[in-house]
Write a protein that binds this DNA or RNA. Structure first.
Lengths: 113, 113
DNA sequence: TGCCGCTACATCGATATGTGATATACGGTA
DNA sequence: TACCGTATATCACATATCGATGTAGCGGCA
């Protein structure tokens, strides 16, 4: 659980990460951020400034459906559910990531250091 | 086959890719781009608009040393050589990439399911 | 001779998106 | 009362990539 990743490397991964955690079920924003942190072993902690715009963008693109729901304690929550369109987008982004990480593995090697 | 990777995913990788190909020897800019394309299996083709600023930045940071050399045919070339500082930076960026890709592997799984 | 294409370096504006700060608001607790 | 954790939202700012454009040298070809 060393330091978390910051800066440029994370660019473009938020969509993939969000769609991935939502594949397993409906979640609200704050919870999505926690799941991503947990699943990445603490490496990724999406900031609100990147997470909420990404959620709105995905909803506008038809990849997510959202609904407000009251919480028994604390503020109301906006729950997000992945759509069929979102599942297609998830496949595309997964494939793109696979190509990208394979290219990096070839270029910089998995070995050395 | 599949297209090359473009856009946001590449952010932050240019430094690592450049330092990696220069670890094996002195190269000039145009050649660096070709090596990266070859080593990544065609997945990455750094544009001039990202490559040259990155080279200048690395030189200013003391990671690279550069010198003009004439070419027997074609325009003169600017050769870049990695320094001790650059090797240290390469280790850091390699480590950061390892942490990042491990986090992604944990978070999104090995590939598309 | 003139044009084209490849090599080679360089810079610019447009674009995307992450970070940290700030705001609002609810409920528990010290 | 003050603070903290939860929860959503937006903003200014920084950064780095892309595509376009500009420059030049050189060889091939009509």
């Amino acid at each position: 659980m060393e330091g978390r990743i910051r800066g440029q490397l994370l660019k473009g991964t938020t969509t993939l990460l969000v769609l991935t955690v939502l594949r397993d079920g409906e979640l609200y924003g704050y919870e999505i951020a926690q799941r991503i942190r947990e699943r990445s072993g603490g490496a990724f902690v999406p900031s609100e400034g990147s997470l909420y715009p990404a959620l709105h963008s995905l909803e506008a693109a038809g990849a997510l459906e959202a609904s407000w729901q009251a919480s028994d304690r604390g503020p109301r929550r906006r729950y997000y559910k992945i759509t069929k369109t979102g599942l297609g987008m998830l496949r595309e982004h997964s494939q793109e990531w696979a190509t990208f990480s394979l290219g990096m593995a070839r270029a910089v090697g998995g070995a050395d250091q």
